[in-house]
Amino acid sequence: MTNQEKYNKAFMTALEITEGQLSGLKYQEIEAWDSVGHMGLVAALEDAFDIMMDTDDIIDLSSYEKGMEILSREEYGIVF
């Protein structure tokens, strides 16, 4: 599974959405992505990539695209 596939799967599983809903998806735009859903999403991403996200990055994770930007940083080193 590619990193992109892992990333998408984490979103789809944690938020119970389809692949077609991913692009442009923003925090609190859908009912499932509330603050509780957010922590579930973070857990799914951490499990998928064997990382622990910093609190600042968890707060900063405001959209599907922003998440990829954060995980691409040197400290996580995920290549999409």
């Binding site: 922590m39 973070v42 857990a43 951490e46 499990d47």
Partner: peptide, 10 residues
């Protein structure tokens, strides 16, 4: 607490 609870929540 933040770090531990993340594991415990799962």
């Amino acid at each position: 607490l933040q770090l531990a609870s993340k594991l415990m929540m799962r």
